[in-house]
Design a protein around this nucleic acid. Structure first.
Length: 238
DNA sequence: AAATACTTGTCATTACATCA
DNA sequence: CTGATGTAATGACAAGTATT
């Protein structure tokens, strides 16, 4: 039953166009009804035998049979014949698809008669072509996202190794500060008033670890080093 | 305004054609 | 012959619009 709906609807839809006046629409409606009557005749013909809905050019080659939902099964007469479009037909369709992916019914009819195909075939071709185009776009989008992702993962690895290196450097710096502190403490054990403070350590000290110009880095509120991972030790000197 | 009918598009699926 | 692949065709459904 559905197949028949499609057949009759097809000829109705082939007459439809979106932006047209009401008058034209009414006229088209009348034409549609006339066509529908023709279709009813065609449908009864189909029911009586065969499926003669074949485009002019295809008529003498292979008759197209109507497809049945139940595959195989009781009657083998209902086997669909699918006809491959010729290269010229495909080329022209591709050309039109390149210009515009949507197919207005006027263009569909024009193309169909130009190609010697059923308007329904042209519509179906465009539908399938749009689906293929969409798939291709999705694939392209996917591969682009994937390469972006791979790039980001690489960058993450790079940053992680940099963090590791800097952490190591920081440990070394801590140890060095510790050593210096102990040395100063030992040397000045007789004069407690001159213990080592951050004030006493100016840029040349920082420069020892390649931190020239980073004086401001240490302009942090008292005790706030607790909030910085790996910097808690700084509070010892604040 | 609501119900109904119709059109058209998308999506998933089926079935045929072709090729390795 | 057979399985994989491409694609024409089908059917279900949704959304938009016209009609009653």
């Amino acid at each position: 039953m559905k197949g028949i709906d499609v057949i009759s609807l097809d000829n109705l839809t082939s007459l439809h166009s979106s932006p047209i006046t009401k008058f034209k629409k009414k006229q088209k409606k009348r034409d549609q009804m006339n066509k529908l009557e023709d279709q009813m005749a065609l449908i009864s013909q189909i029911y009586l035998g065969g499926y003669p809905q074949v485009a002019p050019q295809q008529a003498e080659s292979k008759p197209r049979l109507r497809r049945k939902k139940n595959k195989g099964g009781e009657n083998n007469l209902s086997k669909t014949k699918k006809r491959k479009l010729s290269q010229e037909q495909v080329d022209l369709l591709e050309h039109h698809f390149g210009n515009e992916h949507k197919l207005e019914s006027e263009r569909k009819d024009r193309l169909a008669s130009e190609l010697g195909l059923d308007p329904r075939q042209v519509a179906v071709w465009f539908q399938n072509r749009r689906a293929r185009w969409k798939n291709k776009k999705l694939e392209e989008e996917f591969s682009k996202l994937k390469s972006d992702h791979d790039e980001i993962v690489l960058e993450k690895c790079r940053l992680e190794s940099e963090v590791t290196k800097l952490t190591e450097k920081l440990c070394e710096a801590k140890e060095e500060i510790q050593r210096l502190g102990e040395r100063v403490d030992r040397g000045s054990s007789n004069s407690p008033s001159s213990s080592l403070t951050m004030e006493a350590m100016d840029t040349p000290f920082l420069g020892e670890f390649g931190l020239e110009g980073y004086d401001n880095v240490f302009y942090i509120a008292e005790n706030s080093y607790n909030n910085i991972p790996g910097m808690e030790w700084m509070n010892l000197y604040m």
